[in-house]
Design a protein around this nucleic acid. Structure first.
Lengths: 298, 298
DNA sequence: TATAAATCATAGTCTGAGGCTATCAATTAT
DNA sequence: ATAATTGATAGCCTCAGACTATGATTTATA
């Protein structure tokens, strides 16, 4: 039972005429006759009664017809669904991010994406970098933004943002524009939890300056950390962009070291991105290049 | 998009493995690979991601899969429906009869049929012989029982029943076993309506005996006619079988003439009977041969 | 880390399903 | 009667879809 046979069968049943159906289906009349015979042979019953000149649907044909129509409708629906997916009028894309990435980039870029592709459903997964790679390999997320260098996946640099030392506006360095890492030897540090890249960056900065940081508070998300800094509890190393919109804080460039956090957009190297995932990929790069032209290294 | 392609696609999606799916579908592995590629080419998207050793359903594949499964289910359902029809576990058959036929034959024969083929729906159409032929040609009824000879359709003799003159038990002939047609010259006749074969038989009998019958009452179905005869209103010519179960009546054989009414089972000569129609055909003949062996001429 | 096993893709061959044209047979309209 | 319409048959041809053999790549294992 081939699809062409069902299509031909439906045409003959609808038109009640082999010749006309053959024309409609763009085949020769004998081919149509043969196709019907083949279908009848396969299902083992006569589908049409050859009555006089002309044919008409038999009892069995009338039984088969609705099934045939449903099959043809399903196939058409499948084609349309795939087409809609390619046209980006429907779809789904899942983005993974590490927790500190979201602050400004994600909401605005996703809002842009959503305005442009109304029918595509967005999904956001927040997790650590290594877990994101697992989600990517498992196919749970299509793309992910991480700050660490990861292996085994295809990655592009989304943007590089400078890391700054942030202090309260009452702090002794509050009037300065930059510090040397070594000047932070006596400061109390507020650091991100285990596993966060920003924690590693911080520890690395101190180590290179030749001291082990005195940790005032360990753990806490971005919001908490910057609030604690504003309250004068200590200093912290954060991305420049994370404090753009905050008041009561002062950012100090790090004169030596010049640390930067690089956000990478990663995707599965072997999996073909869906049209929706490819679109999100484009929108993210586009949004960054328009809003962070100065920060993006490319 | 061929049926086999969807079947293969579903197998690979289910098993996540081209080789195993090829085994299951009884084709060689390269044939499976090629079939998948052909399907992907046709729909214009990748349906599987070839990730490492093994394949897994892509975004587009996941979209297509439910459609494919519905198509396969519909085709299976269609096959089962046709099979059930052939097995006589489901079906439909429509029988046409002329009004005076029904009295004993139809109810009992149809009851037998229904006991044997529980799933098959019966439909009964009562109409005149010429209308029944039209219904037969239009495919509304599968079979019909008529008493007249009709042309252009395939007919078999179901049974021949003798026509008798029926009188009331108070009638002057009530003690006799038979009469000559000419003896009925002075009787009042109750006749069936225009178009009924029994009316024609009656008039024909009188004409051959050399007189025109005096018609007391014209029109009326079988029940009415025999009731009127029992009430002494007149005589009538009816089939022997029609009055078997009645009291207050006396039947007289017609010594000369010896008229018989032949019931014929007709079907369309070009249309292939459905299994249900063929079964009803068999049951009717079978029932007649078992219950009217003496009456059936064959 | 080298070797074996597993898995999918490619190359090349062959057969038959399904297309075509030409024509016949049967029915219906003129 | 004659012409037109319609479906079936015969005979031919092409390519889709099957096969075997083999290659390339990844993963498991000694």
């Amino acid at each position: 039972m081939e699809f062409s046979q069902l299509r031909y069968f439906e045409a003959v049943a609808r038109l009640g005429n082999v010749t006309k159906a053959a024309h409609e289906q763009h085949i020769a009349q004998p081919s149509m006759s043969k196709a019907l015979q083949a279908l009848e042979q396969e299902v083992g019953v006569q589908l049409f009664d050859r009555v006089g000149r002309g044919v008409e649907l038999s009892d069995a044909g009338a039984l088969l017809l609705p099934y045939a129509r449903r099959v043809l409708a399903e196939i058409q629906a499948a084609r349309q669904a795939l087409q809609a997916r390619a046209d980006l009028t429907v779809g789904h894309v899942s983005l993974g991010v590490t927790p500190t990435v979201g602050t400004r980039l994600i909401p605005q870029a996703l809002a842009t994406f959503n305005r442009r592709y109304q029918g595509i459903q967005l999904e956001l997964h927040e997790a650590g970098a290594s877990e994101l790679v697992e989600l990517l390999n498992a196919g749970v997320v299509d793309l992910a933004i991480v700050s660490a260098l990861v292996h085994g996946v295809e990655s592009t640099t989304l943007l590089s943002e400078p890391l700054v030392v942030v202090v309260s506006q009452q702090h002794r360095f509050a009037q300065r524009q930059s510090v040397l890492a070594s000047e932070l030897r006596d400061e109390g540090f507020i650091v991100f939890p285990q596993g966060y890249e920003l924690r590693n960056y911080t520890l690395q900065l101190c180590e290179q300056a030749g001291f082990a940081p005195r940790i005032v508070l360990d753990g806490g998300e971005m919001d908490t950390v910057v609030s604690l800094v504003a309250a004068g509890l200590g200093v912290a190393v954060v991305p420049q962009l994370a404090i753009d919109q905050r008041i009561g804080l002062h950012a100090l460039a790090i004169a030596d070291g010049g640390l930067q956090r690089t956000l990478r957009l990663i995707r599965h190297s072997q999996r073909q991105p869906s049209p929706a995932a490819a679109a999100l990929y484009r929108v993210l790069h586009e949004w960054v290049s328009q809003h962070y032209a100065q920060a993006s290294i490319g």
